[in-house]
Amino acid sequence: MKINKVLNNNVVVVKEGHEEIIVMGSGLAFGRKKNDVINPEKIEKVFVMQDKNEYEKFTQIIHMLPEEHISLAEQIITYAEKYLRTNLNEHVHIALADHLSFAIDRIKQGFSLHNKLLHEIKALYPTEFEVGKWAVELVYDQVGIRLPEDEAGHLALHIHTAKMNGSTMNEVMNTTVILHELITLIEETLQVRVEEESISYQRLMTHLNFALKRVVEQQPFQDVDPEMHDLVKDKYQQSYETSLKLAEHVKDRLEQKLPPSELVYLTLHIQRIEKKKENEV
């Protein structure tokens, strides 16, 4: 395997036929130049960027960012793929390195950005969040910079959206923001604090997430017997009124209605939260 282009001391491009392959390894290209043979024992990662624009962006990132930040990002990607048992798409090599480097620089300068969606990210993407926490520890161990838990959440979103055939970052962010708004609406309507660690919160978040997914993808909802609907509506009036507010918010944000059956399920979830509030009074 011969070097076609040196990107930095740890990254080179080789050519096999008409395909350019990116090869990485600590010190892999140190003192090397084009047409030199790579020491196979130094190779740590090999991947192909099929999209030419992505390849060009990656080479720009390689030249712009510190090598240790690139190395950290690649270690996180490798760990994530093993931990999640899935391949991540090629864009993650650009997005994660860029975000991570910017986060490290911010902390060095004394700036820390609050992640207002942290609780939602923890609930929706717990395995990706575990990767984010691992990444935070890796950064501290290798460069001595302590990233806040908020950054574990940001990194988790990058990992989640990088899953092969997954949603785009914009789609994931939009859904997560709407979920945050719905939880806030419940809290304001019921004058209650929804505990992020509670089972009720976890169940509600999971249900809302799937409901939004069905709305966006126009999938059918499970039917509910009309008598069941009327019974829930009459028995849990305040919770039902709250579910109507949630449905109206979803309609405003996504321009699609939730069916009556969904109001029943939302009411039951909200009622658990309302009941907990009553028990504490």
Rank of each mutant, 00 (worst) to 15 (best):
L204R: 05
H63F: 10
I273L: 15
K116W: 12
T127K: 14
H99F: 05
L263N: 12
I76F: 09
A162K: 07
V194R: 14
D234I: 00
Q256V: 03
T267D: 11
L190Q: 13
L263S: 03
E181A: 12
E278P: 00
V136T: 11
D51N: 15
Q237S: 01
V264F: 10
M164G: 00
S112I: 15
A97S: 14
H99G: 06
L84E: 08
F102S: 06
D36K: 03
S101P: 10
A97R: 11
T59W: 04
L100P: 11
E41R: 08
D223L: 03
S243A: 15
N209E: 13
H154G: 03
Q75K: 14
I77E: 02
E151R: 07
N87V: 08
T175W: 05
L204C: 11
E255C: 03
E278Y: 06
E262T: 08
H93I: 08
E274C: 12
V281M: 02
M228E: 12
I107T: 11
V192W: 15
D98T: 11
K45H: 10
H18M: 10
A123T: 05
V139T: 12
D223C: 00
E151C: 11
S112F: 07
V281Y: 04
V215M: 05
E188R: 10
V216R: 13
E20L: 08
K277M: 12
E241W: 13
E137G: 13
F47C: 07
I107H: 06
I21R: 01
S71G: 00
A95Q: 14
N9A: 14
K235W: 00
L28M: 00
G25K: 02
G31R: 03
L231K: 07
H229N: 09
E74P: 02
F58M: 10
V172W: 02
S71W: 00
I178K: 03
M205A: 09
Y240K: 10
A97E: 05
N35H: 09
H180Y: 15
D98Q: 09
K233E: 15
V12H: 02
P259A: 04
K122G: 14
N35A: 14
N8M: 07
H69W: 04
K45V: 07
Y240F: 13
Y79T: 01
R85Q: 14
Q191A: 08
Y140R: 06
L246M: 12
P226L: 03
H99K: 04
K2Y: 05
F129E: 01
T176G: 05
S239F: 08
I94W: 02
E171C: 12
D105E: 13
N35R: 09
R32Q: 00
F111S: 14
Q202M: 07
M205H: 03
Q142S: 15
I178P: 00
H269W: 09
T175E: 06
R106K: 12
E81C: 07
H93F: 11
I38H: 01
Y125E: 07
K213M: 13
L147G: 04
H18S: 10
